[in-house]
Amino acid sequence: MSEKRGQWKREKRRQVQSDDGWTVVSGGRPKDGAGAQQLQSARPTRSVGGLTEEKLLEELNTMERKWEKTSCAKNLARMLGLRDWTVKEAACIGIGSFSIDWDHRYRSMWQLVLFKAVIKLVQQQGKPLALYAQEPAFTPLDVSLLARLGITAVASSVESHITSTSFVYAPFVDWYILLPIFLKNKDPELYIGNEILGDYKTYANSEDKKAVLEECNELGKSFAYKRERRKVPEFEEHGNALEGLMIYWKEDEDD
């Protein structure tokens, strides 16, 4: 089937569940927000036995104390502290569940620690940010934890909260979901997530990914244009929680 733009209308649209639980609309151009609806994830859904909101907060506080002592935290603070930020809202996308009994629970917790740390670094004094999060695997306990942290969990369309003054945090969200759904026609001030490429051909290993390859390549090139990028500093507390994450911000206008 051809992937040329002129033939989108003749393709039959269908919804496919990705490995991470997102609904991906393939074979057509999704309407705003239609490509990322909440589905029951293929991952485990049972919460850790005996886990409560208070216990989650206690875990998070302990991890944040450890974070502050790491070289990653110190290097990140130096890196982001060199700029004057005008961030007004933040969108956290695809972070995973903090309460489901699965192997990646603490990975998600450490990613939440990073999200909160960056918020503190870019927040203007006395001006709290509007914070949002979307994740198909969120449990009611996850949602209540986020609410305690001042973060609003939304079931869909978190991209509607992304503006030119946003911090977008999407740790390891796949390119074929991230670009056409969450970053299309968006120009956030700060982005932390997977590296943004201009050519995803090597990774288009299914018909669903091939269907959006041309569009994603264009979106990737456009997004990376006039943006500086840095690696999230090495994090010694957890082997793969933050490994490979990239930071992008707009170049200064006079550069």
Rank of each mutant, 00 (worst) to 15 (best):
K120F: 14
R107N: 04
L112A: 01
V87I: 06
A90K: 14
S108K: 02
A117C: 13
R65S: 10
F98N: 03
T70E: 10
K69C: 09
Y106L: 10
V87K: 11
L112M: 02
L114T: 00
M63F: 00
I93H: 03
C92N: 12
G94C: 01
K66V: 13
W102F: 06
S108Y: 02
L114S: 00
Q123F: 12
A77D: 01
T62N: 11
D84P: 05
L80W: 11
D101C: 10
Y106R: 02
M79C: 07
C92D: 08
G94L: 04
H104C: 14
A77H: 03
W110D: 00
L114P: 00
Q111S: 05
A117I: 12
L76S: 01
R78P: 02
D84K: 08
K88P: 15
S97P: 06
A90D: 09
Q111Y: 03
T70A: 13
R105T: 09
A77Q: 02
F115T: 11
K116F: 05
A73F: 11
I100G: 07
G81M: 09
R78I: 07
M109I: 11
S108E: 00
D84F: 09
L82V: 13
K74N: 05
C72A: 15
N75M: 14
V87M: 05
Q111D: 04
Y106F: 08
I100M: 09
A90H: 11
H104D: 15
L121H: 08
W85F: 10
V87F: 08
L76C: 01
V113T: 01
W85I: 10
Q111G: 01
L80F: 08
W110V: 02
G81L: 09
S97W: 11
L82A: 13
R107H: 08
L80R: 11
A77F: 03
K66Y: 09
T86D: 14
I119C: 11
L82H: 11
I95S: 00
H104Q: 15
M63A: 01
Q111M: 05
Q123K: 12
A91Q: 04
F115R: 04
E68G: 06
E64D: 07
I119W: 07
V122C: 13
F98P: 06
C72R: 10
R105H: 10
G81R: 13
I93T: 02
W67S: 03
D101Q: 09
R107M: 06
T70M: 12
D103H: 13
D84I: 09
L114E: 01
R65N: 08
L121W: 12
W110K: 00
G96C: 02
S71Y: 15
R105G: 07
G96D: 03
F98L: 09
A117Q: 14
A90R: 14
N61L: 06
D84T: 10
S108W: 00
G96R: 05
T70H: 11
D101T: 07
S99I: 04
A91Y: 00
R83A: 10
K66W: 09
W110Q: 02
V87W: 05
S108L: 01
T62Y: 05
V87N: 10
G94H: 01
C92F: 12
I95W: 03
R65T: 08
M109C: 11
S108C: 04
T86C: 14
T62M: 02
A77N: 04
I95E: 02
C72Q: 12
V113K: 02
T70L: 15
K74A: 13
L121G: 08
V122K: 15
K120M: 11
K88D: 15
L112V: 01
G96Y: 03
E68Y: 06
I93S: 07
